[in-house]
Design a protein around this nucleic acid. Structure first.
Length: 560
RNA sequence: GCCCUCGUAGCUCAGUGGAUAGAGCAUCCCCCUCCUAAGGGGAGGGUCACACGUUCGAUUCGUGUCGAGGGCACCA
């Protein structure tokens, strides 16, 4: 319908003002139902080039539009908006469309099955996942689901920084605990990790435990002089811990990449050589520099330090060449806002290599800080981790669904307050329960209808897809159908903006429409045709609620 | 000092180059003989941080100021 109207308007515009190609003509869904189902600013933008009153232009435009069965009324409003009102029949179509499409309603093939990678979480294996990682996990997973729903071929990837100084730090912390040094004692490493989990690792190491993580299996030597074993064991132990955190959060990855592998398989060295060959590097003060200023950075960056080690962004550039070589036309890195500084450097490094990587590749979605509140006070401590609130603490306290919803329901680039009391509450204060309740209510009505039908032994079961929908014409029903119609474009917009919170907001409004409808009308009534029409509508609503909740990774409960 | 993000109702947050800026909570009022009241309806509550600019029109775009968070190392 929108495409149809847009085409008509474009034709009309050409007829009226042939030279005005650059006009910003909009065809929008007005905020208020009083303004119809679609509205256009066409007459307003034509006012200037034509030097005419917008309302007079609008009159001409309307006269030029052909009659349509779908449009019951066209009016001029306000300064010169043209509002279109659709017929009830044209709105009812969506119900059958949804029931026919089922889980596919809202999905599209815009992505053309192209390869996209979403890298997210990517925590250092130095401790359990915290709330910030949780936000990354929730947002990243939803992004992957959104891209999948819009026809992309998605790979979810987790990158382990298992090669840097923080790992040395971890190893010395475990060593100190193996020796029985208290975290309070002055000989405990100054920047060491002090959480209780370090004790667990030390104990497991000394008793020669075996841990399994993803594709690796490591058995501790139990020898405190064997730092290599201690390092490998500690990393594997924490990767396993993080695997459990992710499992509790119901998040799965397709690929785990290791930073250490980039060194051992020579990718880092090859990348450095290629950069040197590119001519964008120079030696100064015994260090190797990359001229990132050639690519928009405000100063050049060191690649190889005087001690011979590489700075952080070098393996990162190497990692991204690896991503590019794996054929990802699009890469989205979901990270904390503290990664902001690496964006320019990584992109500059990739541009310097001159291997055909587009300028803005890869994409970044950075999320801001999460503050956790309980009883009106900020929660900062976790016994297990020693300092921060762990993801597992949250999941155990408020459940997986609520945690995922709350962490994904806000724009990534704004700071987030996670209210534990709110997430736990089982009332309409809590949007998760509000949405799930709407779904459960529909399930309840439909199952009672199904039971009643069986009892009355009506013979052939009624298929809600074949129902006459013409009785659906109250404001509640119209509003609900309108909302259902908007679902596919909502998914497309959310995916285009890499903004999962758009889905969360949509679902809240759809649930609100449903609760409102539910409260106003009865469904299991004597008027057979009205009953079936209403049941079709709520059945379609149930489907869309489920499809939307799936995008957030939240369960569509059948009862509460 | 420089860069990035944010600043919308008492609180938590949506939203938008256009029409009267929305929702939930909180406050107040109303609705269960009836399929989940875990719900619904209504009232009050706003200088869209501030200033200037662009525009027919700015809360939205631009610049500056203020405030919050993050980033500015041969750290990761």
């Amino acid at each position: 319908m929108k495409a149809h109207l847009t085409e008509l308007l474009a034709t009309a515009a050409k007829t009226i003002a042939p030279d005005s190609a650059e006009l910003n003509i909009l065809l929008e869904r007005p905020k208020s139902a009083d303004h119809g189902d679609f509205a256009t600013n066409l007459a307003l933008v034509l006012a200037k080039p034509l030097k005419q009153n917008p309302r007079a232009i609008a009159t001409q435009i309307i006269a030029a539009l052909p009659a349509s069965n779908y449009i019951t009324k066209t009016e001029i409003a306000g300064a010169g908006f043209i509002n279109f009102f659709l017929s009830p029949q044209s709105k009812q179509v969506v119900v059958k469309e949804i029931l026919a499409a089922g889980a596919k309603y809202g999905r599209s093939d815009i992505g053309g099955n192209q390869k996209v990678q979403v890298e997210f979480v990517s925590a250092n294996p130095t401790g359990p996942l915290h709330v910030g990682h949780g936000r990354g996990a929730a947002v990243g997973d939803c992004l992957a689901r959104l891209l999948d729903a819009t026809g992309w071929n998605v790979t979810r990837e987790f990158y382990y920084n298992d090669a840097g100084a923080q790992i040395d730090n971890l190893t010395t912390s475990v060593l100190a605990r193996c020796k029985g040094i208290s975290t309070e004692h002055e000989s405990f490493p100054e920047n060491g990790y002090r959480g209780e989990y370090i004790n667990d690792i030390a104990a497991a190491f000394l008793t020669k435990h075996t841990v399994v993580a993803d594709d690796i299996e490591v058995t501790a030597s139990g020898d405190i002089n064997d730092l290599e074993s201690m390092r490998a064991f500690s990393v594997a132990y924490l990767r396993h811990e993080q695997d459990l955190d992710l499992k509790a959060f119901q998040i799965e990855f397709d690929v785990f990449s290791l930073e250490s592998a980039l060194y051992t398989n020579g990718t880092v060295e090859k990348t450095v050589q290629a950069l040197v060959k590119s001519g964008h590097t120079y030696e100064e003060n015994d260090a190797l520099w990359l001229k990132t200023t050639d690519f928009g950075d405000d100063k050049d960056r060191v690649m190889r330090k005087t001690d011979g080690g590489y700075t952080y962004f070098v393996p990162d550039v190497a990692y991204h060449t690896d991503k590019w070589n794996r054929g990802f036309v699009r890469v989205i890195n979901e990270q904390g806002a503290d990664h902001h500084s690496t964006i320019t450097r990584v992109r500059a490094g990739l541009q310097a290599l001159d291997i055909g990587i587009p300028k803005g590749w890869p994409d970044y979605v950075l999320h801001q800080m999460v503050t956790v509140m309980r009883g009106g006070e900020e929660v900062k401590l976790s016994k297990r981790a020693g300092s921060y609130v762990t993801l597992r603490d949250l999941i155990e306290e408020v459940g997986c669904d609520a945690t995922r919803y709350f962490l994904a329901a806000r724009r990534a680039d704004s700071q987030l307050v996670f209210d534990i009391d709110l997430a736990r509450s089982q009332s309409n204060d809590n949007p998760v329960f509000y949405i799930q309740y709407a779904h459960a209510r529909i399930c309840s009505v439909l199952s009672q209808w199904s039971n009643l039908s069986q009892q009355s032994n009506q013979g052939n079961a009624v298929n809600l897809m074949d129902v006459d929908l013409s009785p659906l014409n109250t404001p509640h029903e119209t509003a609900l159908m309108q909302r259902l119609t908007e679902y596919p474009e909502t998914v497309v917009n959310a995916a285009a903006d890499l903004a999962p919170h758009v889905i969360a907001n949509y679902l809240k409004e759809l649930a609100s429409d449903l609760h409102s409808y539910y409260n106003e009308y009865k469904f299991l009534i004597d008027d057979e045709s009205l009953k079936l029409a209403r049941l079709s509508l709520i059945s379609a609503t149930q489907q869309v609620l489920k499809n939307g909740l799936d995008l957030l990774g939240v369960a569509a409960k059948e009862r509460m």
